[in-house]
Amino acid sequence: MIDRPARIAVQLHPQHADYGQIRDAVLRCEDAGVDIVFNWDHFFPLNGDPDGKHFECWTMLGAWAEQTERVEIGALVTAVGYRNPDLLADMARTVDHISGGRLILGLGAGWKERDYVEFGYDFGTVGSRIADLGAALPRIRARLAAGNPAPTRDIPILIGGGGERKTLRLVAEHADIWHSFSDAPTLVRKSGILDEHGAAVGRDTATLVERSAEVRHGSPAELADPFVAAGATLFTIGLGVPDLDLSLVEEWVAWRDAQG
Rank of each mutant, 00 (worst) to 15 (best):
P5S: 03
A6D: 03
R7D: 03
V10S: 05
Q11M: 12
P14M: 02
H16V: 00
A17W: 00
Q21Y: 07
D24E: 15
C29N: 03
E30H: 15
G33H: 12
I36F: 14
D41Y: 08
F43Y: 14
L46E: 03
N47W: 08
H54T: 13
F55E: 01
E56P: 07
E56T: 10
E56D: 14
T59G: 13
M60N: 10
L61R: 12
G62F: 11
W64L: 15
A65H: 14
E66A: 11
Q67A: 08
G74V: 07
V77M: 09
N84H: 13
D86G: 14
L88R: 06
V95P: 11
L103S: 09
L103G: 09
G110T: 12
W111G: 05
K112M: 06
V117W: 03
G120S: 14
G120W: 15
D122S: 13
G124D: 10
G127D: 12
L133H: 05
L133W: 08
G134F: 12
G134Q: 10
A135H: 12
I140Y: 10
A145H: 01
A146H: 03
I155M: 09
I155Y: 07
I157N: 09
I157Q: 08
R165T: 09
K166M: 07
L168Q: 13
A172P: 09
E173H: 00
H174P: 01
D183A: 07
A184P: 14
A184W: 09
T186W: 08
S191Y: 06
E196I: 08
A200C: 04
T205G: 09
E210F: 00
V215F: 04
G218K: 05
A221E: 12
A224W: 12
D225T: 12
A229F: 01
A230Q: 04
A230K: 10
A232M: 11
G238N: 07
V241Y: 01
D245L: 04
L248Y: 04
E251I: 04
W252Y: 01
W252F: 01
W252G: 04
V253Q: 09
R256I: 07
R256T: 05
